[in-house]
Design a protein around this nucleic acid. Sequence first.
DNA 1: CATGAATGAGACTTCATTCAT
DNA 2: TATGAATGAAGTCTCATTCAT
Lengths: 207, 207, 207, 207
Amino acid sequence: MTRAAVPKFRRRAEARPDEILDAALAVFTEKGFDAARVDDIAAAARLSKGAIYLYFDSKEALLRGLIEREVAPVAAQLKALAEAGLDDPKATLRLIVLTAMRLLNDPRIFATPRLVLSVAPRFAEVARFYRQRVVDQALGAVRKLHRKGVGDGVFRDVDSDAVGRLVMGPLLIHAMRRHVLGAEDDPPPDTIAKAHLEILFEGLVLK
Amino acid sequence: MTRAAVPKFRRRAEARPDEILDAALAVFTEKGFDAARVDDIAAAARLSKGAIYLYFDSKEALLRGLIEREVAPVAAQLKALAEAGLDDPKATLRLIVLTAMRLLNDPRIFATPRLVLSVAPRFAEVARFYRQRVVDQALGAVRKLHRKGVGDGVFRDVDSDAVGRLVMGPLLIHAMRRHVLGAEDDPPPDTIAKAHLEILFEGLVLK
Amino acid sequence: MTRAAVPKFRRRAEARPDEILDAALAVFTEKGFDAARVDDIAAAARLSKGAIYLYFDSKEALLRGLIEREVAPVAAQLKALAEAGLDDPKATLRLIVLTAMRLLNDPRIFATPRLVLSVAPRFAEVARFYRQRVVDQALGAVRKLHRKGVGDGVFRDVDSDAVGRLVMGPLLIHAMRRHVLGAEDDPPPDTIAKAHLEILFEGLVLK
Amino acid sequence: MTRAAVPKFRRRAEARPDEILDAALAVFTEKGFDAARVDDIAAAARLSKGAIYLYFDSKEALLRGLIEREVAPVAAQLKALAEAGLDDPKATLRLIVLTAMRLLNDPRIFATPRLVLSVAPRFAEVARFYRQRVVDQALGAVRKLHRKGVGDGVFRDVDSDAVGRLVMGPLLIHAMRRHVLGAEDDPPPDTIAKAHLEILFEGLVLK
DNA sequence: CATGAATGAGACTTCATTCAT
DNA sequence: TATGAATGAAGTCTCATTCAT
């Protein structure tokens, strides 16, 4: 209720950092961190270059702030995933793969990992942060699910870390080919995800 | 006999482009393309900045030359792989995975894909070139092998493209975590590769 | 009324391009286009080097902008000359020669043609532009005046183009000797102009 | 006879400086002094860049040597002109104008004055040298001829310096428009020269 | 809060000149 | 004498950052 009382221009002001980060994400994604000019970001945010510096200390701070903002909800979701939904491991795994596939297929969503990868050589902490909060979380969720499935007698008792990579790796390949390397004529994400799952569940070798 | 004795300065001159590309690879890998200064590369090549420009037109030409040089042998090897070794698809696939894993685990060898990924937003053609000559070649080799295995009654008849991603994806995940995102305490590559293969061959689900 | 009071910093910004061109003219004239450094121009304009590039894209753009600015008023004046003042061709021609002589004698004013001549080998379009807008305009004005004089029975009916060159050539010789080749002890411009006119009007040969 | 005995390669070696100056003239003329690279000159002389420095100390020395070489014969000819051929001042003046016109019309011959003009802001001594040895010589020759003609009762007794400028100026205008400013559709040199002479001799004004 | 003019450090690139061979 | 590889100084241009308004 109190929130509604805030005058409009104030809200805009409060929204600025977010708008700037939106602009930064767009420009960083298009050009890469170094080639992106603060001018470009300002233009995309419909602000002057100077105004950017009212909200962020530096271009690097923009990068860090962006990664943090983008990582937060994903990290939260992954944590939730890892802790809930263990009743039917097989169905849950299926759901994870389908969801992850759809997310990674969306250029907007893949923009952040893409950006992290491209700045990783320069910003080791950013890379580490992302790994811990996203990559390892995701792999960990699958691992935990697998362990549960093993306990339930649904999954074979194999290396759970390897399972994590086998579940996520194919999705990464697809996303990289598509978003980073410019491949364009791949099947729709659901088709791909289902093919992965079937092979993964049943195995490649004929009995 | 006398002719065979190539004078020293000639040999040096002929070796220069390669030496420079070595230096460029090292510096690009360490800092990323944009943050790398031509000065750094010159220093690494033990040359003056100006000398670089005797052999390459620009920093960008350095990048392109480097990618081309590094891609060539890999592409050749992959092409060979795709055309030979189809006698025992299962064993061949095992060999491919083990070999690829070792290669991707070597920081020196992974440096090129890493560089390509990081410059991809800026240099679309470099990215496309790499995809066609390396990524699609590799996936294609696995696909072909799978088709043969299906014909031989060894592999189940599933989507061969998906098989390619399932075979290579986990390796990519490992390499990225390790080289790009700074993960350090993973098991040795052979262990990882074998775990992948077992799961992939036998499937995840208990019968 | 309030509106009329343009704030100071706005005026400065608006005046900048002109100030920069002033500085550029001075430096180009002193050193020539190639030997002039953008740093020098910036210093002469009391600006930082970078600021120059806020107003001009390149050193070359500076040259072009300068030529255009300097040419504009001269071209306008010449066009006016060619269209008006035909009542007394003889007096008008006398006026033209005296005026042109004074202008060409002024180092500041001769600076532009001098610059154009020195960059002509490099910038063919600049040269052509200058020829069309200034040189041919000036020669054309004389030619037109001569035709009128012929019609009026004042001038002999000879090649009007040759008349143009005969009128302007001696002035150019003087200006070049003085400003380009460093001659210093010539008579005052009016004296010179009058001597030219007398000879030109009466002819060299005794009847 | 002795000269014929000199072995061929020796002669070539002796000819080198001249060949280099030829190349320098060509390249300087085409690009201007600053934009001309020593590499270009070496290539035009079919030599290596380093070899140029066996014969000339610097790029500037090349310029000075070139001007000196080109000026020498012209200066000699002009000196001769000024001292001989005074028998028939009118005919001699006619000859001078026709000859000068043809020379200035030849791009190869006008190349040197053109070069001098373009480097004048940078190399004051070169400019002064050229003025003294060429421009003032030429003007002086005409002046002397005029004085003689006055004495002979052929020419009116007017300012001889002005006569010099009136004789040479129109030729300079033509040459500059043509070679420097890129004009192309002018009448042949003899036609032009004759028109100049007629007007100059007879005067512009009807009696 | 916002602007946009201004700075200055630093990058890439060029090229006259040198030097080992 | 001749080469061509190499240098290093210098120049143009860019851009993150600051600051007066």
